[in-house]
Amino acid sequence: MLYGKRLRGLSIAAFVTLTAGIALAFFYAPMDADQGFMQKIFYVHVPLAMVALGGFVFGGAMAIQHLRTRDPRYDLRSYVAIHLSLILGAGVLITGSIWARASWGHWWVWDEPTLVSFLIVFLLYATYQPLRFSIDDPEKQARYASVFAITAGAFVPLNFLAVRLAQAYTHPRVFATANGGLPARMQVAFYVMLVGMALLYATLWKYEMASKSTSWQLRRLRAKLAGEESAAPRGRSAAPSLPTTT
């Protein structure tokens, strides 16, 4: 497993696209008539949210693969994807909150179904780590985490539907229809940012995978050199593990 491959190219692509996206958002896209400068946060917030949700779905798909094959590497992929999405998710909530403050004068608004359902999804996935941590046997941990990831993945659309229907009225929103109300120049900046965020996510995912699998290989080599019994026990952990001997 060489996750380090093409990492440099990916990193550069992510950096260039994000820089271009930010430049477009600030200098090319027009100023929003109602919200003014603060609307620029939209170019970070929405792509971030979409990429984070995509990561949760990806984590669920990898979890399905893990249950089908019982290959711990799929569990690692799922773990890293969900972990990253959680971190991005915190960013989504913070940027959303700043935007809400700027547009509506409150740090939090409950009549914004997308943001509210994102909060619920975030709260659910926040239990992923504690769940893993409280199961000692690595195999059982991986299996249970996969069941969680699949359940939570299926929960996401259902939750969005319920929260959406619960809104008595819909607030006028910039991004309600992704391309409906948006001027062409805003769209360009938005999509470049979206691609940039996706590339950033992919880069970070690959970095983490490379780091995790390298340390596994290191442990395995150590165990081979010094004999299995001499390898220090791994101890309690929420992170997946591969057996050092195969």
Partner: peptide, 19 residues
């Protein structure tokens, strides 16, 4: 099957039951 049984139940179930 977890060590934190009683802690995890509401943490897992309540968000799932939000709809």
């Amino acid at each position: 099957q977890t060590r934190a049984r009683d802690l995890l139940v509401p943490l897992l179930a309540l968000p799932l039951l939000m709809p």
